[in-house]
Design a protein around this nucleic acid. Structure first.
Length: 469
RNA sequence: GGUCCCAUCGUCUAGCGGCCUAGGACGCUGGCCUCUCACGCCGGAGACACGGGUUCGAUUCCCGUUGGGACCA
């Protein structure tokens, strides 16, 4: 498939809630495939389930895709806008004798299913309505596809290889419900046909649907596309990833302070690999992506590795970009009273990146530099702001006042001489100062902190801390 | 229960018959660095599910068992 420039793939989520990790991985692989082969990537919203689909969810999907950088070439198409098309294809099947009306109610079906089961027969539809010559009065029918009984349907999957299904296992599936809406398996086939999809790349959970879809393609008179079924993403307990496994929605990762490139990189490496390489830019992903190197086994989602990647990408990120992102978070928290000077804020960001795994951590680290009044952690105070350090802090404040420029190097000189004169270790002075300035015991290097925080704030806080003792 | 799929360190994976005393990454862990916490650097523990074949030789091919998953009900 090296010259397949007519590649057309799609991502077809149902707008019934969040855009979750599994969906993103499917979207990503489709996108990579399309970009690798210079084909088209189509976004299609499968919203025929009217009871569960919402406009809000469509927005979440669209926004999520944009955030991730997964741009599409056509769409978003909505199935609800295509009802006429489905009806036309239904009619075609009925007229061709390949589909028939079914008047059975769910209750009736359930009873017969149980009877069949009791009699030791497979619980497939008994085709009762196929022989009907006239409509059943007072009932609105569904439409069933007349499936093939004999032989086998072979799914030639690009990832799985040939998967064989016995046709007698497949029963006459409903293609149009009595409410007039097409069912999933039918709509997806009509959509993929009319949108000229060349490769259907989707989750493993659809593999069992594929033989009946192939039969529909054949009944409609079309060649099926290529199929590629991606292995599932599992939670730590090895069941299909879901909400109970923790954060699974894209929006949650945005809120948690993740960068899109970290999520993309992580998800790309879940089920796909390229030798020993772990870090991939989007461009490298596009260049190297191939269905040949997609694994068959399901993979467990590992949040810690994602966190590691996020840390990596924060180190790589442009400070101006990070500054804007972190500032946004601070504004949302309502702690930004006066807009900080952006060049100064970038210095703060530069100091914070190394020890931050998420933007939220950066925000927390930036807080003492932004707000006017800090609250000092009680434990930290008890341990480091002891009676003997009060004079030490006052002495330090006095010596810092005349320092110009108020730089890392100059400040360090003051500390060094003070520490030497008193014959104490640097830590004995640095930790109390750290508590005085940030309210806690954890921060970047103390000289950096002091230089970035600025003389006024530093001296004010050191004196305030001394007065607290 | 039926159908289908899958099987290398705890996790993601490399491996497509000999290069494997099984490599990398996350995590874990020992040490170094050090003003705290991190980062970083150096080292360590840690896997081919099991049983049969095929072959001169199996992690790699085939079959079975076991285990896990998905779909349908």
């Amino acid at each position: 498939m090296s010259t397949a420039n007519n590649v057309r793939v799609r991502f077809a989520p149902s707008p019934t809630g969040a855009l979750h990790i599994g969906g993103v991985r499917t979207a990503l692989f489709n996108w990579l495939f399309a970009r690798h082969y210079h084909g088209k990537f189509i976004l299609r919203i499968e919203d025929t389930d009217q009871t569960r689909s919402t406009g809000e969810s469509i927005k979440i999907i669209v926004d999520g895709m944009k955030w991730l950088g997964l741009d599409w070439d056509e769409g978003p198409f909505r199935q609800t806008a295509r009802m006429d098309i489905y009806r036309a294809y239904i009619d075609r099947l009925i007229k061709g004798g390949k589909a028939y009306y079914c008047y059975c109610t769910p209750d009736e079906l359930e009873i017969r299913r149980k009877e069949a089961l009791k009699a030791g027969k497979p619980p497939k539809y008994d085709r009762k309505c196929r022989a009907l010559s006239a409509p059943v009065p007072g009932r609105i029918p569904a439409v069933r596809f007349l499936s093939t009984d004999e032989g086998q349907t072979i799914v030639r999957d690009l990832i799985r290889g040939a998967v064989t299904f016995e046709n007698q296992q497949l029963d006459d599936l409903i293609i149009q419900r009595s409410d007039g809406f097409p069912t999933y398996n039918f709509a997806v086939v009509v959509d993929d046909v009319t949108m000229k999809i060349s490769h259907v790349i989707r989750g493993d959970d659809h593999l069992n649907n594929t033989p009946r879809q192939i039969q529909l393609y054949q009944a409609l008179g079309y060649d099926p596309p290529e199929f590629a079924h991606l292995p599932m993403i599992l939670g730590a307990d090895k069941t299909k990833l879901s909400k109970r496994h923790g954060a699974t929605a894209v929006t949650e990762y945005i809120d948690l302070g993740y960068l899109p490139e970290a999520l993309v990189n992580y998800l790309a490496r879940l089920g796909w690999s390229h030798g020993d390489q772990e870090i991939f830019s989007s461009q490298e992903l596009i260049e190297n992506f191939s269905l040949d190197t997609v694994g068959k086994a399901p993979s467990v989602f590992n949040p810690e590795k994602l966190l590691w990647l996020n840390h990596y990408y924060i180190q790589q990120a442009d400070h101006g970009r990070l500054a804007a992102l972190v500032l946004d978070l601070l504004r949302k928290d309502g702690v930004v009273k006066t807009e900080p000077d952006i060049e100064w804020f970038k210095k703060l960001i530069a100091m914070l990146t190394e020890r931050s795994h998420t933007l939220v951590e950066m925000k927390t680290g930036a807080l003492p530099f932004i707000i006017d009044e800090i609250t000092i952690d009680e434990k930290a105070k008890a341990k480091h702001l002891t009676a003997d350090v009060a004079p030490l802090l006052r002495e330090l404040a006095d010596r810092l006042k005349p320092i110009e420029p108020f730089s890392h190097e100059e400040v360090e000189k003051v500390f060094t001489s003070l520490v030497n004169e008193k014959g104490i270790k640097l830590g004995k002075l640095a930790q109390p100062v750290r508590v005085a300035l940030t309210g806690g015991t954890v921060s970047p290097g103390i000289f950096e902190v002091i230089a970035v925080m600025g003389k006024d704030k530093v001296i004010r806080r050191i004196v305030a801390a001394a007065n607290l003792i």
